[in-house]
Structure formats: C-alpha cells, structure tokens
Nucleic acid binder design. Structure first.
Lengths: 232, 232
DNA sequence: CTATGTGAAGAACTTCACAGCT
DNA sequence: AGCTGTGAAGTTCTTCACATAG
C-alpha cells in the first residue's frame, strides 16, 4: 500500500501510518531533553546520553529518530541544534497553534494560567463557559465568554485549530460536537468520559483519576510492575 | 520464572508481570462505563456492549477481564454489580488512598478543588507549597503548609501513600526524593520534566503540553493517523 | 575506534476462531 | 442459541547485531 507521505520519511521503507504512536510520545520526551540541554549550552548528544536522560533504550532512541531521517553523525552523535529543529519540525511545532479552552472551572482557569502552553507554541486565544456567574469575568486578560458564542467565534476565527475541553462529563460530548462542527482539528479533553468523534479528528483524553487508579493498581500489586513503562 | 501472584490470577498461566500495562489502562475505562450504567440501574452487559461504549474491541475486553478471573456468564454476559466490584478490587480501589499535593500554584489548587479524586477513592489530606505568600492560605478547608514540614507530616502520617507533584520543573526532583524518602509509594507528577526514582516507586507523569504536541503531530501529518489509539 | 542507522530476530500485544457453559 | 473464555495465529513494537560512516 503506497501512500503520499506528508511526514518526510525520505527513502525509508515505512509509511507514516507504520510509525508507532509510542514513537511520537517519545519524540516529545527527546524534545524536552534537547530543549533543556540547548538552554544549558550543550551542543552535542549521543543516543546513549539521550537514553540516560529519558530512560529510553538507546536502540529505541536511534530507531525512533531513524523513521524521520538521518540526523546524527556516525562516531559523533547528534547536534543539539539540529535535533531540536528536526523534532519541532516533525511534531508540527514550527508554526504556533491557536487554542480555545471550553470550561472555566478550576481546571479550565488553571490551564489558562499555565504558561507552559504558550512556551511550547500553543496560544490560548479565548475561554468559554456556560455559567452566567463566570461569563464576563477576566482571567489573564481574557474575558470569559458564553458557550453560546463559541460557534460564532470559531466561524470568524477559522485559524483556531485546537480545542481543550474542561467541562463536566455531562456536557463534554455536546461541546466536542460543537468544536468538530466548527473546524477544530484536534481536541484535548479532561472530561472523565469517553467521547465519540469522527475518525478524522485528532483526540486525546486526559483523565486525572485514571492515572491515580493505575497507580493504585501497581501499588496494590507489586509483582505486576514492569521495568518498562509507557507514559504520556 | 515463577513468582508469587498477589493479583488473583487463579489457575491462569499468566503471572502478574505478564499482564500488559495497556490492559490496566483499559480496566479503568471499563470501570468508568460500569459505574455509569450501575447508576442508571442497568444490571447486565455483554462484551459487545462494553465494546460499543469504550471503542475497545470485544475480544480484547474479554481477554483483559480473563486475566483476572471468570466474571461473566456464557450466553448471558457480565453482571454489572459483579464487574464493578471485581474491577475495583483488581485496581486496589476497595480501600481509600490518602494523597498529598505538593505545589499550590494554579494547577495544585485546581486539583484540590477537583471533586473527582474523592469520588473515586483518593482523599486529598494536605497541600504544601514553598512560597511564603501562599503558606497559611486556605483552600477547600485546607491550610497550605510549608514544604519544610512535609517530611515531618509524612513521618507522622505513614498511611499517606500517594503524592501528587504540581511544582515547577526545577524543584520536581527534590520533592520527588523527599516523598520517596518518606514512605510514599506512588507519585503522580505534572512537572514537565523526567524524574529519576527507585524502581519500586510507582510513577506516572502527566505532561499537559506533551498531549498538545502529540495532537500537533497528528494534525500536521494526517497520513500518520491510525485507527487504534492508546490513551490514559 | 566510536556511535549511528537498520534489517532481522525476538518479545509483547491484539485479533481470531472456536470450544465450553448456560 | 448465545456469549464467554482462551490457545493459537497474526500483527506490531522493541531489541539486537552489525554494517556503515566519520
């Protein structure tokens, strides 16, 4: 099956859909390390050193990177500046992403305050809520707007591509539908419920209690612990 | 390699460490559905229906559950009340877990306010911060305490088993060390940095920007999308 | 001599097909 | 007849070993 490769997988005999999801998760970890070292003025790193920093096997580090090109120099390692640039390019972080937050409860407000999003290229451009007491209040220079104008807002701002859902479980599906109907391409949901979406919408769910439940399992069952772990 | 099985894997020819991590993640999803249906008064569910609710293949639903016992009735399905009880038991959710939060910034405070933790069996018992302006302030009936008394607190409250780290990247490792040195068995970290921990400490990391970066990748590279997805 | 890049081997996970109960 | 439970098959992901390049 031959497909147009919009990821630059050069002369490789892998198509983009053969690249493991876990690889993408790990790319973000490499980027984290590389950004830190870049700030510290380090100029070069080997897969073994990247392995030390991330606890990801060095074979896997090289395999992951090799899906996208040959970024290293044999006998030497990877140049930090090159690796950083390439990772950002692969992950689509060269351009900034306009993002709306729906839900101005504690979590939604915490997310607006969180500076990490902007630092990494995600610009929060508006926040919405359904509660009359919250609408009109200001956070970080934003006025909380009514969810009833969300649709209109997205129509007049078609460059907003990502929506963050921080509403209660009961209204999550409704909001998700609204976002999808108005051009949003990616959704990050914090609602503790499964949401149904069309296949072509990119969707990630973070359920805070899920993580605690998984921790509970491994605390309760120490023999179940593995040496490896997959985390996002 | 034969090991003592503290998970009740009965006559099965699997040891606890052979149960996939992904299975545990999915168990929490089954639990979510089963709790919802239980509230709605539904008494029975088949693996096919569980599959519809979770978008997890029904073969996999049955395989996941079969690691831990035979909870269903052939020809009929699973009794909701039984499944709920068993899932909670497997995940170690029969007893409640005392949990401390370290870091009273926006995120830490949002977590304290979040009622979902208590609903699922995780009791927030204290919150700590290093900033003099925050120490002494009250949230949800808790006085924010100094991180300098964290160690003392944990020593006099040895039944606290889980720590949530919501401090900046720079102090995350320090706090993690402190928690581990004082009997904490599981750590959930929101710090955008890798933390080094002894192997026997259960550790989960939630990096909020990581999820957005992964979304960015799949938005930017539509051909890379897969039909399956692993989410926590 | 060092460290990358990668086909091939191996391990882990998922899907399948159907035997086994109710 | 219907749906679970599970060995076996199939697929995906990780590890390995080594050819390759500096």
């Amino acid at each position: 099956m031959l497909r147009k490769a919009d990821v630059d997988v050069r002369k490789k005999n892998v198509t983009p859909d053969q690249i493991p999801y876990s690889t993408i998760v790990r790319l973000t970890q490499y980027l984290r390390v590389v950004e830190k070292l870049d700030e510290l003025g380090v100029s070069n790193i080997s897969s073994a050193e990247l392995s030390d920093e991330t606890h990801i096997n060095s074979f896997l580090v090289r395999k992951d990177l090799s899906y996208f090109g040959e970024f290293g120099t044999r006998g030497v390692g990877y140049e930090i500046s090159v690796l950083k640039r390439e990772l950002k390019s692969i992950l689509g972080l060269v351009k900034r992403h306009k993002t709306v937050i729906v839900g101005a409860g504690n979590l939604g407000r915490a997310l607006v305050h969180y500076s990490g999003f902007r630092d990494k290229g995600f610009d929060i451009v508006a926040i919405f809520d359904s509660s009359p007491e919250k609408i009109g209040a200001s956070i970080e220079g934003f006025k909380i707007e009514s969810v009833f104008v969300l649709e209109e807002y997205l129509k007049s701002n078609p460059d907003v591509t990502i929506g963050i859902i921080a509403v209660p479980a009961a209204s999550a599906q409704f909001i998700a539908n609204l976002l999808v109907a108005n051009n949003i391409q990616g959704i990050l949901s914090f609602a503790p419920i499964a949401i149904n979406l069309p296949e072509d919408v990119v969707y990630a769910a973070v359920d805070l209690t899920t993580h605690l439940e998984i921790i509970s399992y491994y605390i309760t069952n120490p023999d179940a612990r593995k040496s490896y772990s997959l985390r996002a």
